[in-house]
Amino acid sequence: MSKSVLIVEDEPFILEALSFLLKREGLNVVAFTDGDGCVEHIQSIKPDLVILDMMLPNRSGMQILEDLRAIDNFSNLPVLMLTAKGQKKDRAAAEQAGVSLFMTKPFANKEIIRNVHRLLGI
């Protein structure tokens, strides 16, 4: 059974590009554009990997990450944070909150696919 990736990204064009890339790799993709209710979706979908944008409407990627890490079942869930806010302090905050990998925008498609494979162990 193919692995599933949940993307939370409020920029529709980036979301389309990412979804296409991951589906092309044979992955199941579920997408959300709003931070609100995201943790509940993750709990019900139980993805193998979450790709989180940092700046989201209603609830930031950082808050979602912190919420996830506070839930036992998701303390080890791979979370790739993708953000245009690539300052050292943002990276440090994400690492402190338990991010698995922090990537800055703009990214190279090959790089993100390579990292997704690594985080999924495939």
């Binding site: 920029e11 980036i14 590009a17 890339l21």
Partner: peptide, 25 residues
């Protein structure tokens, strides 16, 4: 503004790569 521009550039870069990487779309 910088955040917006990086977001715009991300879309352009990623989408252009998809269209030009030689794989079928």
């Amino acid at each position: 503004a910088m955040h917006l521009m990086l977001t715009n550039i991300t879309t352009i870069k990623s989408t252009a790569e998809i269209l030009s990487d030689g794989e079928a779309v």
